[in-house]
Design a protein around this nucleic acid. Structure first.
Lengths: 114, 114
DNA sequence: CATTATACTGTATATAACACAGTATTGTCA
DNA sequence: TGACAATACTGTGTTATATACAGTATAATG
């Protein structure tokens, strides 16, 4: 596999991860977190995500009224805390359900391919 | 859940499916298929995909030299047949592996969220 | 012979991940 | 004490891709 092909492969993998980013992020926001801790936490658990991706996503989720955020200045350093609201929790439930169904479909497709 | 929120939810689900489209499509192309049969086959197995999505994808995969295609005019009707080449099969293998790892990570994240 | 299913091609658009740049504060350790 | 790494964001592109929309044309079916 040459260099260009490897690059294409990486792009395809990235594209695959793309769809899961919202789900992975929301899954961690049933309890309150701030951006940096969220990145660390996801990375430690094997889900790679950078600032470049997370912060815009958080703002978008807030626009869509799925989470609430709040500045906290009492902390050792000012931080913005994020947490799913009821709306967001319901959406997370539904996305999780959809995810389960969808992965089952893919699992079958892949098995068949072998 | 009001109308606007439902729309947002559908958009998020769609976004989730997005990443799986290449994988699902490629999984069916270890054996030769033409576009229309591919759409039918995927839909029957629970994976929704339309012409709008599939044909541009097939053209892209061919550009990336992951599949070969060929017009067949002897058929009752002219059809373009698609099939993964060796390159594509290798990419499918690697994507499948990545998918397995990735879904395992998400599974853990979701369990933890409950 | 009208309608439905089949089987594509081509162009346009919206969205979201990611890139890149910038700002500023808090440990830490030599 | 002063440099450096880690922390903790904001703002503005760029690019790739799914999807929308439009169009073309043939085969089967009742």
């Amino acid at each position: 596999m040459n260099n260009k092909q490897n690059l294409e492969l990486e792009k395809l993998k990235q594209e695959m991860r793309r769809g899961t980013i919202v789900l992975a992020t929301m899954s961690q926001l049933t309890r309150e977190q701030y951006g940096y801790s969220l990145i660390k936490s996801l990375n430690e658990q094997g889900f790679e995500i950078g600032q470049d991706t997370l912060y815009p996503l958080l703002r978008r989720l807030e626009e869509q009224q799925l989470l609430d955020s709040e500045w906290r200045v009492e902390d050792p350093r000012p931080r913005r805390y994020y947490r799913l609201n009821d709306n967001g929790k319901e959406v997370l439930r539904q996305l999780s359900e959809d995810w389960r169904l969808q992965t089952e479909v893919i699992r079958r497709l892949l098995n068949e391919a072998e």
